[in-house]
Amino acid sequence: MYFAEFMIYMLSPYEMVQLIVLQAQTLVDRLKAKYVGGIIISKEEMFKELSDAVITCKKDVVTAAVEKAKGEGIPAPEIIEMGLAVGMNEVGVLFERGKLFLPHVMMAAGAMEEGVKLLEADMPKDAVSKKLGVIVNGTVEGDVHDIGKAIVSTMLQSAGFEVHDIGRDVPLQNFIDKIKETNADMVGLSALMTTTLQGQKDVIEMLKEQGMRDDIKVMVGGAPATQAWADKIGADCYAENASEAVVKAKELLV
């Protein structure tokens, strides 16, 4: 501000008139934006600020942006859907492109969660704490590979799903038990070895035997899994990587 004042003293009278006209015009534009049917532009700017705040992965930045948006009178569901969630999607894209890493994804998810908490009081009752869906995720019995599955769980969780990661080398019956216990909408079955791939098929058969198959979506993944394999065993979808798992889960559950 001091610099701006200093600049004014440096200007010629003609330049000063020009500056005043310019500032007046800017003010008019801003007023127009806010009050003369231009509220969409203002909202868009706010949504961008919210989205950018999530991408910083910092809680205080996100909560500040949420407070500001609330102050602007933007409805809570819009703050979440058009701002925070958009930012979280962008975090997923940046993760896939190697620009952000797993800790960042978690920090962003944590920051978004804090932001959402500030909005809970303003949310419609049925929307509070509503998750996109419940997913049981694990690596099938005999297979000790954990990391890829853990990344998928993290990405699903940060995208807004309630995820129950039941680990690796999971006895197949445990998938069934956990699905029942959590009333899950989807089960994710990971296998990193051709020898354990069969476990994915076995879980699907067990779901059929127990009359549960129609009530749950099945996602398969892991290095040796392919779309052709998913088709063959009757899975609902195959995901090539963690980001695709989020996209497919949203397609099937949201």
Binding site: L102, P103, M106, M107, A109, G110, V144, H145, D146, I147, A150, I151, S153, T154, Q157, V163, D165
Partner: peptide, 27 residues
């Protein structure tokens, strides 16, 4: 390196820690 994380190894599984938002501990 996964073999050094629980249950195969002595150090707590960073995947589990991360999901619990324990990022420093995971690191």
């Amino acid at each position: 390196m996964g073999l050094y994380y629980t249950p195969d190894g002595p150090f707590e599984n960073p995947g589990d820690l991360m999901k619990a938002f324990k990022i420093d501990e995971a690191r």
